[in-house]
Design a protein around this nucleic acid. Structure first.
Lengths: 118, 118
DNA sequence: ATGCAGGTTAGAGCTAACTCTAAGTCAAGG
DNA sequence: CCTTGACTTAGAGTTAGCTCTAACCTGCAT
């Protein structure tokens, strides 16, 4: 898979993908004879997971830490599981908080409505 | 209410509060004889609402736009209601997306568990 | 052989949202 | 009178995460 297709598949710009590789988030990307990146479907799975972590509020720094454990092999499975569990719990809490915010916004909107058509 | 107490009540640092006032998010803050800010409980309600919008992903730029409408008086009620409704809908969508992410994380963690204790 | 599409690099530049610094004012207590 | 501490300002500095630029390669079609 070339850069164009990988960018389309992942939803990230070529600029962003090169940046991710540069900071170490995408280790082991192969190159073809002319020095162009040759992405695999495994790379795609990994970058999709990165996006999931990012979209749920994990910083690139923390994702990088996870990435390094992953690159270090099976002996880090336990630590990786722990990181994911903590992140999952944080996400759960955030969703709950956001549901409270949603309720408060709904209440405010209802208040606006009552002012509009009294 | 002086800066120290307002900062404690709002959970924002004095630096951040001055910054918010500077960019126009906190209009009409009164001053006492020696030029110090004198916050009211109405200011506190407003800054709490700002924090709610921010915590649900609204940029300070958009909050500022809302703030300017609020300062412009009752004639902007309809537009303010519209902004809130759009934001509420976006939040709803985001919560739903996050719930999918949560499920995916749970699945990944379950997978890790199965590797650990086969 | 030439021009174009699609890559490559190092490194500069950008935006949002703070966060801090320096230098100063003011009121009250010892 | 002098110090202490809480405040003030303008403006500089920081961080995260991109985003872009300039200059350069490479392979293919006209």
């Amino acid at each position: 898979m070339n850069m164009r297709e990988f960018s389309a598949q992942s939803g990230l710009s070529a600029h962003t993908l090169r940046y991710y590789e540069k900071i170490g988030l995408l280790p082991g990307i192969q190159r073809n004879a002319s020095g162009h990146r040759a992405f695999t479907s495994r790379d795609l799975e990994w970058v999709n997971f990165i996006v999931r972590l990012k979209d749920t509020g994990m910083s690139l720094g923390n994702i990088l830490a996870y990435s390094k454990l992953r690159a270090a092999g099976d002996s880090t499975l336990g630590r990786r599981q722990h990181i994911l569990e903590e992140h999952r719990d944080a996400l759960k809490t955030r969703i709950e908080t956001e549901q409270l915010h949603l309720k408060a916004l709904d209440a405010k909107i209802t208040h606006y409505r009552s002012l509009k058509a009294p």
